[in-house]
Design a protein around this nucleic acid. Structure first.
Length: 157
DNA sequence: GCCAACGTTGGC
DNA sequence: GCCAACGTTGGC
């Protein structure tokens, strides 16, 4: 794959735990995306997410689930240290510094969309049939978005 | 390696 | 709060 190619992603977060406004208000508007405990999502952060990739920020498990903003990958996959901390909610005794099991990336706030593009309307669009988010039973918290899907979603704003 | 039990996700 | 869908765990 050419280093010049930008990839696109979608990442879910429950706004009660961490919202787009929380990211915007962080120092440098940057935060590490810790707490992912799913192997498929881990592998994408470890292998595929590159500096400069753009990411939709999706609010899940809330009143109006949907895409609320855009962020950018600013640091590629590295060990998720929250797994090492017994006091952390995401502690995993099977992960340690010598053999970290979980990975994370750093993301920087880019913008908040002028409105929430809701899950409901994303599901209604035949152009997005292939998007993992709208597939039945989907539970992936991180997923790839094709360039075509990315550009189409932006036209919905 | 199978699969039942269990815990979690996340829309509704 | 409900519950379907899914991933993980662990007994065998």
């Amino acid at each position: 794959m050419s280093a010049a190619l930008k990839n696109y992603w979608l990442m879910k977060s429950e706004p009660d735990a961490f919202s787009i406004n929380n990211l915007r208000d962080r120092p440098n508007q940057t935060e590490h995306w810790d707490g992912v405990r799913n192997y498929q999502a881990r592998n994408m952060m470890r292998d595929d997410m590159k500096r400069g990739d753009l990411v939709f920020f999706y609010h899940s498990n809330c009143e109006i689930p949907g895409i609320v903003g855009i962020m950018e990958v600013v640091k590629e996959g590295y060990p998720d240290f929250s797994a090492f901390d017994p006091d952390d909610h995401h502690f995993d005794p099977k992960s340690d510094h010598t053999k970290p099991r979980w990975m994370m990336v750093d993301v920087r706030y880019v913008k908040t969309l002028s409105r929430t593009i809701t899950l409901r309307e994303l599901k209604d669009r035949p152009e997005l049939e292939g998007l993992a988010l709208v597939k039945r039973g989907n539970r992936l918290s991180i997923m790839p978005v094709s360039q075509q899907q990315w550009q189409f979603i932006l036209t919905l704003e």
